[in-house]
Amino acid sequence: MADPQLLSNVRALVGRQYGRVYAWDEVNAPMIRQWCEIMGVENPLYTDPAFALGTPHEGLIAPPAMLQVWTMEGFHANHYPPGSTDENPYEVLKLFEQYGYNSVVAVNSELSFTRPLRLGEKLYYTTRLDAVGDEKTTALGTGFFVTLVMSHFVEKAGGDEPVGELLFRVFKFRPANAQPAAPAPAASAAPAKAKRPQPGISDDTRFFWEGCAQGQLLIQRCTACATLRHPPAPVCIQCHSFDWDTVQASGRASLYSFVVMHYPEVAPFDHPNPIGLIELEEGVRLIAGLVGIEREQLQIGQRLQVEFQTFDDALTLPLFRPVGE
C-alpha cells in the first residue's frame, strides 16, 4: 500500500500548471533537413522550397514529429533558453523517489497537431500535471502512471497560437526484481534473441519433461487404482494413493477446446498463436500448442497427433498437428 502522506502530497500537485519553456532556435531549414536525413524521411514538402511553394502550404513546413525537438534543452542539462521557467514539471517524480519509487519508464507519447509549423516560427510550451493514477502493479514493479500534457504555442504579435500538444505518460515504480545492473559482456553487440520460457520442474513433473526430451508423451498413473491424471500431482484424485508410475500415451487425440492468442504479441511466439485443450484417447486432457493449421480451420473434435519440437536446443515440447479421420 502506498503511504497516505505521499498520496496526499501527490494529489496536491495534480492539475498544476508549469511555466513556459522556450525553444533555443526558431523553426529552421537546416535542422529540418538533418532530421529528415537521419530519419529517412524523403518528403520534399520539408526540404524542397520549389515543391513546397506549389502546395497548399505555399512554403516549407516542419515534419510533425519534430514538434518536441524545437524545445529540447540540448547538451547542457537543465539549461533552458532565456525567459524559460525555473519550475520543474517533473517535481512529482521526486516525491515518489522519497518513498523508494526510484525507477521510471516512458509508456506513452501522444502527439496531436493543430497546424503545421512554418520556417521562422518560435515555439514555447507549458506543462500541466494532468493525472496520477492509483498504485498499480505491473510486470516491471509497483508504482504510479504519471501523465503530463505539454501544450505548444508559437509566439505571435497578435496573440500566441496553439500548434500542438504532447501527452507524455511515465510509470514511476519500485522494481519487482531489484538487481544491481550487471554490466553486459563486452562483446555483446547484438541483443539476445528471446527464448521460450522454461517450465518450472518439480519432483512431481520431472518425468513429463524427461519423457518429452525422449519423444515420449508420459501420463501419470495411480498404481493403486490405475486412474490416469494430468497435469501431474502427488496424490491420486480418486483413491488418494501417493503411489504412481507412468504410461506412454499413443499421442492420438482430439481437440476439446482452443484459444487463439492475437495480443499481446510476445517474442518468440508466432502470432496468431493457436493453443489447444487436447483430449488424449487415453481419456486425460492437456494444454499444448497447435501446429500445421490455420485459425479458420480449427474445429472442436478434430483428430490430432502429437509431435515433438525442440526449442533453443534446450526445451522439447509436445505439439499437436491435425490428422485425417
Partner: peptide, 21 residues
C-alpha cells in the same frame, strides 16, 4: 512518421501520432 507518410504521400496532414513504447 516516415512509415505512414511513405504510404500516404507528401500532402497527407498529420493530426495525431500516438505511440506506446
Amino acid at each position: 512518421q516516415r512509415y505512414v507518410e511513405s504510404w500516404a504521400g507528401p500532402l497527407a496532414t498529420f493530426t495525431s501520432l500516438k505511440i506506446k513504447l
